[in-house]
Each structure stands twice: as C-alpha cells, then as structure tokens.
Write a protein that binds this DNA or RNA. Structure first.
Lengths: 155, 155
DNA sequence: GAGACCTTAACGACGCGTGAGAGTTA
DNA sequence: GTAACTCTCACGCGTCGTTAAGGTCT
C-alpha cells in the first residue's frame, strides 16, 4: 500500500496535472492499477514513467513520440528485433535534439549580441524607431543578428 | 516591384506555410503591404521577420513571445525606456533557452547510455519483457537512466 | 462528515492543416 | 483567355486547462 500513490500525490510529485495524468492513461502511456472503488494507484514504475513523460514534454517532444517509445517494445517477439527498432527510435530523437541544441546555441549568441547593442540605447531620448532615431545602433548592417529585424520594424 | 515577394515565394523561402504567414499577419507579427487587388507584398524587412519567426518557432517558442518581441518597442516613447523593456524580454528568453539546453544535454547522455544498453540485446532471443527476460540489462538499477522506465514497463 | 477521488461532458486556447469557392495576376 | 496564383471564410485536430454536476471512497 505504501508503494502506491494516488493521483493527487503523483501530480504534486511529477509536475503533471491530474487532468494530464488521466489523459496520458487514455493514451496508454501510463496504466495505473485500480482499487475496487476505481481509485488509481500508481506504482513506482508508473511514477518514473510520469516523471520521464514530463521531462520529455518540457522539451516539447510530442506525445506521439513518447507514446511510441512507451509501446514499441511490445510489438516484437524477441529482444533482438525490439532492440533494433527501439534503437532506431532513440537515434531519431537524439538527432532531433542535436539540431535543437545547435539552434539554441546560435540563437543564444544572437541574443547576447543584441543585448549588447541595446545597452548603447541606455540614455537615448529619441523615439525608438528607424525614423525617430536613424543612427540607432540597431539599424541593420551585415553584423546585426537576424533577430534584430524583429525588434526594429517600421514604423 | 522586384523588391517584393508574394506569399507563395515567401513561403518557399522562409519555411513557413502560406496559412502560417496569413496567421502571423492576423497576430500583427508581419504586416505586408497590399496591391489594389489585396495581394500581399512582402518587403525585405518582412522577409527577415518571417525567417526569424520561423527560427523561433522551430524551438517551440510561443507566438506570444514572438509577438511581444515584435511589438514591445512601439509601446515606449524613448530609446531608453524601450531598450530596458526589451532587454528584460530577451533576458527571460535567454534564461529559458539555457534551461532547455541543459535539459537537452542531460537527456542526450541518457539516450546514449540507453542505446549502449540496448546493444547488448542484439542477439537476444528472449521475449522482450521483464518476465520474458528477467536478466535483461535494461532491468532497472541505480545507474539506469530514467528514460529506460518508459521502455521497460510491464508486461 | 470532510476531503480526496471518480466519471462524463463540455467549452476554450493555441498553431496551424485543409478545403471551398471566388477573385487576381502575368 | 487561361493557368497559376491569391484571397477570405470556415471547420478540424492535438494537448491539455478549466469548470461543472453528481457520485464514491476513506
């Protein structure tokens, strides 16, 4: 009995809402046991699964992918086949993550450059627009990070 | 005339769909000119904005945030005020990205460990389940990555 | 009896995909 | 004039958040 959590306790522990936990059950991602009164009982394994699912969702990994990882193994008869299929899945995920990571890194450096440029507007009394401040350091040139174009639109 | 793109051309160039470009206009993120026949004409600045928006969306940064960055400046009268507010926005974004990056890195190392474990199932003829293969290297111990619990559920 | 839990059911937001039907452009 | 493009609705989906009603468990 002590080995099981009810939904509220798991929600607090895992960071997922009760609604979300029920929804994941609908999708077959977590399959808790039940009492006679239909109260969900989450085992230690279920708890781990909930945490992992939350971690993955925080990286915006689609539920479809999570579901695939959770269910793929059952579709095979031997460890051989299953491990091959699983490895392929994880490989795909891993290379996705690599792409994301490199995008994040390059965006980070753009952000830092942009914040440095912005610091030189610290005492500027001009109107913050291309027409109000035509010599603004934000005015686009070759070295300006792309993201500046989002800030420095007309008017 | 040559300086403007119509929606189809921009879609091909930016990676955003036509629908998405129209939606971003609804939100005020991109505001193209129009011909007399209401065909949208995107300037070079608009094109940059579209690309940036796409980059940010590929990192699952919410449109709300993109919209905020695109519109915040206009709400202030001087460069001073605007740059302060903008810096705050970018700061928040940057620290979000830091968190994401570190989550990605730790997940990546879990994935690599897991794929290594899976390689030892390469010639296994057992049924891939805790009961079918009780000595499986995936069986959870202290060093097993959390994500394995997603793979290695019952039955 | 109080508080946590159950189910069903429904509505809403976000970020678009998809299609219909009509109009524009080269 | 015709082919290719574009326009404006408008509905639908996934992933929940939220509220509600009415019941059950401990």
């Amino acid at each position: 009995m002590d080995d099981y959590l009810k939904i509220g306790a798991l929600a607090r522990l895992s960071g997922l809402s009760e609604r979300t936990l029920r929804y994941y059950e609908e999708l077959g991602i977590i399959t808790p046991a039940r009492t006679d009164g239909r109260t969900r009982l989450y085992s230690k394994k279920d708890i781990e699964v909930a945490k992992v699912a939350n971690n993955l969702r925080e990286l915006d990994i689609p539920l479809e992918t999570i579901q695939a990882i959770a269910s793929k193994r059952r579709k095979f008869k031997t460890g051989e086949q299953s491990s091959l299929a699983m490895a392929e899945l994880l490989e795909t995920l891993s290379s996705d993550l690599n792409e994301r990571a490199s995008k994040i890194i390059s965006l980070q450096s753009d952000l830092i450059t942009t914040m440095r440029l912005l610091r030189s507007c610290r005492n500027c009394k001009n109107k913050p627009s291309p027409t109000g401040c035509p010599t603004c350091p934000l005015e686009i040139n070759e070295d300006t990070p792309q993201i500046v174009s989002l800030i420095w639109q007309n008017p």
